[in-house]
């Protein structure tokens, strides 16, 4: 190696180090990309998440028809639903509706299968618990009747709001054509 190339190598190395340092220093005066969690944020982090965010599952039992579509479509069977016929009133009741959050992989297939939009992903993701049993969400505490949509299309005024929320969820999140239809109309 000649002296000239030796000196050139040193020069190139020093200039490239300084070139990198200029970029690094230019970032010193910029706003940081990171935020401190969980303190020091103006709004709860859940509210800043996009609408489609797939968080922990929640079920609105008032509008669940008990069709078991979510249980069938779940690839890891983390949803277990029990339905029992009440012999006296001839009414079908939920005995349990459990979702194992430990198993759930947040794929969203159950929410898409639901006809009323009662099972859906919330924006909630902080689910730490001291024991695995605490991560099984029980949505039925005592036997409760199934939701039956009336044939005429009229809904119970008490439930109307909940049905609307569910259907809106289906339109916006789980129906793939929702966006395209909204764009055209």
């Amino acid at each position: 190696m000649s002296v000239a190339s030796y000196v050139k190598n040193i020069k190139d190395t020093v200039t490239s180090v300084f070139e990198g340092m200029t970029i690094t220093f230019s970032h010193l005066v910029r706003r940081p990309m990171t935020i401190q969690y969980p303190d020091k944020i103006p709004v709860p982090i859940q509210e800043t998440l996009p609408r489609r965010y797939r968080g922990i599952l929640e079920v609105d039992m008032d509008i669940c028809t008990g069709c078991l579509a979510c249980e069938r479509d779940c690839p890891i069977t983390c949803i277990t639903i029990g339905i029992e016929m009440d012999k006296e009133t001839k009414q079908r009741n939920f005995t349990h509706f459990d979702i194992d959050i430990c198993k759930c992989m947040y794929c969203g297939l159950c929410a898409e299968a639901c006809p009323t939009g009662s099972i859906r992903h919330s924006q909630e993701f902080e689910g730490a618990s001291y024991n695995p049993a605490g991560l099984v969400r029980h949505f039925v505490t005592q036997p409760a009747p199934l939701y039956k949509p009336k044939k005429g299309g009229e809904t119970d005024p008490k439930l109307a709001e909940k049905v609307d929320t569910g259907l809106k969820y289906l339109d916006e999140f789980a129906t793939p054509d929702g966006g395209a239809a909204a764009e055209e109309g």
Binding site: G108, F173, E183
Partner: peptide, 19 residues
């Protein structure tokens, strides 16, 4: 709706439209 394990592409198309 997910950051790493998307489950976005379905048989026949995609799960959600790009708005």
């Amino acid at each position: 709706g997910a950051r790493l394990t998307y489950n976005y592409i379905r048989i026949g198309g995609v799960g959600y439209d790009i708005l």
